[in-house]
Design a protein around this nucleic acid. Structure first.
Lengths: 222, 222
DNA sequence: TCACTAAATGAATGCCGTTCATTTATTATC
DNA sequence: GATAATAAATGAACGGCATTCATTTAGTGA
């Protein structure tokens, strides 16, 4: 596997503008995704990105203003993996389920992007905006009062972001260890949950919360 | 305001163990909170922390293993601000409301801790564990089946964490800007929401989602 | 008394994102 | 067609970051 550790070019490119541009936003995005796939977000550094693209680190700054821009590129790419196909093609509840599960799954392996998305003006991410257009239209057409569409989506997204973290939590996160005696109620609850689970714990919690949100928001329809 | 920029000590302490210990975990925690209060999490560096405590940066490593440990100290301190007083003192729904709103508020100004909490084994944070004990007992006593207590809490927490980010989002985050024409459904929804809001937008979304979760989880009682 | 441990200093390390002067090629203008 | 402006690369440098380590000094237990 190419870890981006060693440049493959035989000869160094000499200074100055090359005949054909080496870099573009799409190439930067995909190189970033490869680095993340290999070593996670720790592996995504401007130096490693430059190495993988066989340029000097400073060359990247002709195309992005900062590393934050790179994260936005990756975020907007991932957003195109979110499945909005259910809206307008069946019951609203099913569309929301498909959307929410695919949204959580897309970002569960990209949690470092969550702080970026959560406060990112939609203008900066065209595919993200396109996703909102489909979803908000789907909510309106399902009968959600227009003034409630945005808060309903925000509530669902907040739940999705938090749940994406949960997927990455270690299996023993709730093991009270040697504190078990002083926390009998919690310890019993953790045991009882562990005993009867078939699905992944994170999936049980996500399913439970999602169905509650769908029911509560669905009740707003008129 | 003390920004921790300049050490106040007149004379340098000479090398070697001092007669009385200068540092302890509580002092480190409170100095960290002061730094965060002043300049946010960008201001929380090991060097700034050392400056505020009037020690060399390396001295901190006699008390914590890494900066991550400092974040855990802060996290566990904040968890004691979460209001669990409602459990056992009135209706379950009211207890959950009090708990959830105070939990979200405690971490809305500390979102960089969320990636830390979300994957932190409870053993490492005694106050966090104590909070779970009260909440899980409250859920069980309210009639939530024992095997559902943990996923119910996890679902609520996921929503709370995501919502904490939402509080910090810029006011114009949903302004579609010059893309408004291509996203008419979303643009109309954003307008309609903006027109009639009285509360803070983040509070409307949080209230909506929280009531849905309370209703859905409450329906599990037997 | 003496070894061991705890807690401080201060110097050094390697990595990080970013900036800037410089070089070269393309594009736009007269 | 010359010339100016712009775009895209290199390579050297910067300050800041968390962390490590040798060293010094003081308290502690055998």
């Amino acid at each position: 596997m190419d870890d981006g550790g060693t440049p493959v070019r035989a000869v160094r490119r000499r200074a100055g503008r090359p005949a054909a541009a080496v870099l573009d936003l799409s190439g930067i995005t995909h190189a970033a995704l490869e680095l993340i796939g290999g070593k996670g977000y720790d592996g995504l550094t401007m130096a490693a990105l430059a190495r993988k693209l066989e340029v000097a680190p400073s060359a990247l700054y002709n195309h992005v203003e900062s590393k934050h821009d790179v994260l936005v590129l990756v975020e907007d790419h991932l957003m195109s993996l979110v499945d909005v196909s259910g809206f307008g093609a069946g019951p609203w509840e099913d569309a929301v389920r498909t959307w929410a599960w695919s949204y959580r799954d897309a970002f569960a392996t990209h949690t470092p992007l969550i702080p970026v998305i959560a406060v990112l003006p939609v203008t900066d991410a065209p595919r993200t905006l396109a996703m909102y257009e489909v979803v908000s239209t789907g909510f309106r057409d399902a009968g959600i009062p227009e003034a409630r569409v945005v808060p309903a989506i925000v509530a669902l997204e907040s739940f999705i972001f938090g749940s994406a973290y949960d997927v990455t939590a270690p299996a023993n996160i709730f093991d009270p260890g040697n504190m078990a005696e002083s926390t009998p109620g919690f310890t019993a609850a953790v045991r009882s949950f562990g005993d009867e689970q078939h699905e992944r714990p994170a999936d049980v919690a996500f399913g439970l919360g999602l169905e509650a949100l769908i029911a509560g928001i669905g009740a707003l329809r008129e």
